[in-house]
């Protein structure tokens, strides 16, 4: 089991967090899980849509305080 890589995209705004995730996803290995931290409300909707289109896997999405923690596993 690979460890979770955290991407802190707090205080960046749409489309910043999604772009950060895409950048790191390119460098990740299949099976890796990335955790995106974002304060941008839009990311909570954008990221799952992107993940679905690409065919990766949503692991979880929850808001703790002001920060969304969105976990995605690289599937391909």
């Amino acid at each position: 089991m690979s460890e979770v890589k955290v991407i802190d995209a707090c205080n960046t705004f749409c489309p910043g967090p999604l772009m950060e995730l895409i950048t790191y996803m390119k460098q990740a290995q299949i099976g890796d899980t990335l955790e995106l931290l974002s304060t941008d409300q839009g990311s909570a909707a954008d990221v799952p849509e992107w993940v679905e289109k690409v065919g990766h896997q949503m692991v979880g999405s929850e808001k703790i305080g002001d920060v969304w923690h969105i976990k995605v596993r690289k599937a391909k």
Partner: peptide
């Protein structure tokens, strides 16, 4: 366009 609508 890179995000899920046609403009940011």
């Amino acid at each position: 366009y890179p995000i899920n609508r046609i403009h940011s």
